[in-house]
Design a protein around this nucleic acid. Sequence first.
DNA 1: CGCGAACCTGAGCAAGCGCTTAGAGCGTGT
DNA 2: ACACGCTCTAAGCGCTTGCTCAGGTTCGCG
Lengths: 207, 207
Amino acid sequence: MSTAEETDGEIAPWSEVTPEAARRLLVAAVEAFAERGYHATTTRDIAGRAGMSPAALYIHYKTKEELLHRISRIGHDRALRLLETAADSGGTASDRLADAVRSFVRWHAERHTTARVVQYELEALSEEHRDEIVALRRKTDAVVRRIIGEGVSAGEFDVPDVPGTTLAVLSLCIDVARWFNAQGSRTPEEVGTLYADLVLRMVGAQK
Amino acid sequence: MSTAEETDGEIAPWSEVTPEAARRLLVAAVEAFAERGYHATTTRDIAGRAGMSPAALYIHYKTKEELLHRISRIGHDRALRLLETAADSGGTASDRLADAVRSFVRWHAERHTTARVVQYELEALSEEHRDEIVALRRKTDAVVRRIIGEGVSAGEFDVPDVPGTTLAVLSLCIDVARWFNAQGSRTPEEVGTLYADLVLRMVGAQK
DNA sequence: CGCGAACCTGAGCAAGCGCTTAGAGCGTGT
DNA sequence: ACACGCTCTAAGCGCTTGCTCAGGTTCGCG
């Protein structure tokens, strides 16, 4: 019926999570958190989806919150790496910004289940864990701001308010996780391309 | 210490909610839902904030979910009216789109507490209630799409993908509720102005 | 004054929550 | 052969949850 590897219609990149039972629990938690939200999800539901008893969860994770933290941590790491790869590739600022937006958006669409948890359940984290995640988000922000700043310096972009525009660009991309529907008519690829174009317009990139 | 009327630093527009005790409960619920989320909020917390016993809540509302529905309904009505007012005012499509975005964004920033509940707690609603709210959202979408469509017809805008761009514009505005911070450096007015400019760029409006 | 309606509280119920514990099953090293 | 460590379960503990209900207070109105 459902293999542990198949979620969101693609191979789930949870290979770093071992052993296999811990990964199954984590994937189940992602699905449950995305569907109902962290607080509305019970540990019994998570364990059930993973085909285990409720107690099995606590062999691999100390608390329900630790599960959320692990998910959030891995997701943020992945998203940040996507952006950094695009930012460090060669090409003009326009190329790099378009690349960054395209891959960032594609990730949020393809893996919207994960992204929803990663982006919208921050407040359910403990204080220390939230601080750690917020630091990752600031890095994300810095990467995009740098690209836009370089585009302005190079005369490629026309942006009166760099921090504000950075915020808007990231906000636009992140919100894809909220509305994207796999049953909808747009593929992640299409949304990525559309958004890259829109963002280039926002920064007044030369054609 | 805290009057019932003062929330978000402005006069709360909950005047349609009577009697006063029901309004106090509703305002308390908005605050609590915005802070912790619907599922993490207890009826005891809501009643406590309103200075009442837990049982008092059930004199004015049948369930906790009814409270959420009332909040969501009123909020969506208000947001939709803001957009319609801007859409029906005279002027070019650019003027109307800028107006719509500015007031819509300003509302999401000024009343981000309410907006957060309105925009991010849809899934906690019962099926019928959610259907009702989704219908309002479709209306919202239609208003913005109409403005953009008219701008394209008039030759004011250059938009290859009208539905996609509409989605992106609304998504951008709505997400303000998530990140806006009253303690931050930007006023709702400033964010509205910035966003109106960004959106005009997105639709390729003539300068 | 007295009556009824509207409003609110204290106490608490049934259900469900996160999490714990005792112990069973089983593959592995010696 | 056997003890060990790892994984998992059945049962359930203590607590909190949404919600109820019997009863008290307050008020407008005759």
